[in-house]
Amino acid sequence: MEWLALLLAYLFGAIPAGAWVARHRGVDIQKVGSGNIGATNVLRTLGAGPALLVAAFDVLKGGIAVWVARGLGLEGPWLGGVAVAAVLGHNYSVFLRFTGGKGVATSFGTLLFLDLMVALLTLPVGMLTMLLTRFVSAGSMVGGLTAVVVSVALGRPLWLVLTLAGLAALIFWTHRENIRRLQQGQERRLGEKG
């Protein structure tokens, strides 16, 4: 049951909403802008409406994966594994030849269902970082780190802290090119077209 839940979480996370929404508009999202299937690239190429749709779906697919796993009786490290599997599905989708997005919205969706309090304390920090810097990448990475710090500060179980640390590490890994551009002063700010 546990391994099946991990597989289902991966497959659910792998649903490439950004690619499908863009394709419906006649655009191959992986060939425009950053080539990313996430909401930020959709915003830059297709506008706010499609981006909101993609962001909502990416959050929900992470959350629903955890919710279903919990409904099947999974808890503790297995639940953390489901969260990571859903994000890996988004980042390396079997439907897109194992390419995909950066996993930020899907990670947040899993966090909402893993620990609502940690999610609600993390979100304002990530959003404020984005608003102050106008760098989505900076807000994403700061948000990932904040979730880990908050989970430790609240005395959450080790499995949850390690899960959030793993998700934060994935966020930093998928943003490695953004980190390079930030260092070189070449990162695009929120609102700039792709």
Rank of each mutant, 00 (worst) to 15 (best):
residue 24 H to A: 12
residue 19 A to G: 02
residue 28 D to N: 14
residue 27 V to H: 07
residue 40 T to H: 09
residue 32 V to E: 11
residue 30 Q to E: 14
residue 36 N to A: 03
residue 14 A to I: 07
residue 17 A to N: 07
residue 21 V to T: 06
residue 45 T to G: 08
residue 58 D to I: 10
residue 26 G to M: 05
residue 30 Q to C: 02
residue 39 A to D: 03
residue 32 V to P: 07
residue 43 L to Q: 06
residue 41 N to T: 12
residue 49 G to P: 00
residue 39 A to R: 10
residue 56 A to I: 05
residue 17 A to T: 15
residue 44 R to A: 08
residue 44 R to F: 05
residue 61 K to R: 08
residue 31 K to Q: 10
residue 19 A to H: 10
residue 22 A to H: 05
residue 59 V to N: 07
residue 54 V to N: 12
residue 21 V to E: 00
residue 18 G to P: 12
residue 45 T to A: 13
residue 46 L to H: 07
residue 50 P to E: 02
residue 47 G to Y: 02
residue 44 R to K: 13
residue 58 D to S: 03
residue 38 G to Y: 14
residue 53 L to R: 07
residue 61 K to E: 04
residue 42 V to H: 06
residue 51 A to V: 08
residue 34 S to R: 11
residue 44 R to C: 05
residue 23 R to T: 01
residue 44 R to M: 09
residue 61 K to H: 05
residue 60 L to F: 15
residue 38 G to H: 01
residue 40 T to D: 04
residue 54 V to D: 08
residue 30 Q to L: 02
residue 16 P to S: 11
residue 35 G to P: 01
residue 27 V to P: 08
residue 41 N to P: 08
residue 35 G to W: 10
residue 49 G to N: 01
residue 31 K to Y: 00
residue 53 L to W: 03
residue 42 V to A: 00
residue 30 Q to N: 01
residue 55 A to H: 00
residue 19 A to F: 12
residue 36 N to R: 02
residue 51 A to T: 09
residue 35 G to L: 07
residue 49 G to R: 03
residue 50 P to Q: 07
residue 53 L to Q: 04
residue 53 L to M: 11
residue 25 R to Y: 11
residue 24 H to D: 01
residue 40 T to Q: 12
residue 28 D to S: 12
residue 22 A to G: 03
residue 48 A to D: 05
residue 57 F to N: 06
residue 57 F to K: 04
residue 48 A to I: 13
residue 29 I to L: 14
residue 24 H to K: 12
residue 61 K to D: 10
residue 51 A to Y: 03
residue 45 T to H: 09
residue 20 W to R: 09
residue 54 V to R: 12
residue 16 P to Q: 04
residue 25 R to F: 10
residue 57 F to H: 09
residue 44 R to Y: 12
residue 41 N to Y: 13
residue 32 V to Y: 11
residue 44 R to W: 11
residue 46 L to K: 04
residue 56 A to Y: 00
residue 24 H to E: 09
residue 39 A to P: 13
residue 49 G to Y: 01
residue 45 T to Q: 15
residue 28 D to E: 14
residue 51 A to S: 15
residue 34 S to G: 13
residue 24 H to N: 00
residue 54 V to L: 11
residue 36 N to Y: 07
residue 57 F to A: 15
residue 52 L to H: 06
residue 49 G to Q: 00
residue 55 A to Y: 13
residue 44 R to T: 13
residue 51 A to Q: 14
residue 35 G to R: 08
residue 25 R to N: 03
residue 19 A to L: 08
residue 44 R to G: 10
residue 15 I to Q: 08
residue 42 V to P: 03
residue 31 K to C: 00
residue 32 V to K: 04
residue 38 G to P: 07
residue 42 V to I: 15
residue 40 T to F: 07
residue 37 I to M: 08
residue 51 A to H: 13
residue 60 L to E: 03
residue 43 L to F: 15
residue 60 L to D: 01
